[in-house]
Nucleic acid binder design. Structure first.
Lengths: 189, 189
DNA sequence: CTGTAATTTCAGTATATTCTGAAATTACAG
DNA sequence: CTGTAATTTCAGAATATACTGAAATTACAG
């Protein structure tokens, strides 16, 4: 990794590289993205090559991947062939894109697979039980997805206000509980 | 993979194996867990070995990993050395454990790393900018974590009611918007 | 157009991860 | 205790993933 990066920025890049590799994103791509997010100015491929000390071709492939996730924007400068890349300026935009993309790539296919298995007629008791679990999974995933989609509708200003207000989500949910006539309050446990 | 498994159950196991491998869980462990979730009765290591056609030692390591995630429960039968494993009977319990464990393993260390970098004094303009992004990330992650923690408090009965009620989350958030004096409603966009 | 500075592709290599079989260890029925 | 049926460990093999450099392609300034 380049000596041009300050230790602070290096640490952050390294951390997100590690995190990425735990989330099915390869380490280098994670580092590349951290670098882009932390940079005020757009970077060109050579900047990244130099900053992270990886090969030019690796950068090219990484950028291709980040583009396919719609996590980076491509920019041109007048009278220059070179391409410059930048991450959205708003962290919440980044998170929304990540959530959206993972939904498309993993959640939707999972829901579809489960649905296909659920329309089959169970051949025996085991399949009946298995289908019941699948039904529960489908229901749960669908609901959590709906939930996150609602949250994704918020723009970062609204989210900011929510944050400043402190943990009011608990209160909202409590209210919802009452609305639903929860049994929680009455339980001795 | 064993011929004892029906095609339906096989498909499900294969799908979750693939999904697992995209989420930093190895394919085989994902398959093992799917098998356990879909089985009504607890399984012993040899059952899994046979069902998935993988080596006994691989099963042992996989189970160890699932235990470390607290995703499986160990059971003994009187007068038998053999150990039997089972997944929680409630899908929401499984999801809550997954969320909780990932929080411990990934979110908490990330928040801690960011905090450590944020207490440093920025050495130059770049670091100042980078710190600002880190601050935003920290804020966002902290808030989303709080949010999920609130949701995790719900038991599966409450969650079920919420689900049956249809998408009321949107309404709750709208209400919250009004409470916060959102600008969304006024925007021409 | 043309030349060139850029990006992309891809086959081969390096690295990391996963899996296995054999040996060591452990738990407990008898 | 002891024997044995179980689990665990771990070094090495198999596999999968990531990375590189060289060659091919592309985009555009002039």
């Amino acid at each position: 990794m380049s000596e041009k990066l300050t230790p602070m920025i290096q640490s952050c890049i390294l951390h997100f590289g590690e995190m990425g590799s735990r989330w099915g994103i390869n380490r280098t791509v994670g580092q590349m993205y951290a670098l882009l997010v932390l940079s005020k100015e757009p970077l060109c491929a050579d900047d990244i090559t130099e900053a992270l000390s990886i090969s030019r071709s690796n950068v090219s492939m990484g950028l291709k991947e980040l583009m396919s996730w719609e996590l980076v924007k491509l920019q041109h400068r007048p009278g220059e062939r070179k391409e410059f890349y930048s991450a959205p300026g708003d962290v919440w935009d980044i998170a929304k894109t990540l959530i959206e993309q993972r939904r498309k790539r993993e959640i939707d296919p999972t829901l579809s697979t489960l649905r296909n298995l659920l329309i089959e007629t169970p051949a025996n008791a085991e399949e009946e039980y298995a289908q019941q679990r699948m039904r529960e999974m489908h229901e749960l995933i669908e609901m959590l997805t709906l939930w996150t989609q609602e949250i994704q509708r918020l723009d970062s200003a609204q989210l900011g206000k929510l944050l400043k207000l402190g943990n009011s989500i608990g209160k909202v949910l409590d209210m919802k509980d009452r609305l639903l006539g929860t049994t929680k309050k009455d339980a001795t446990k």
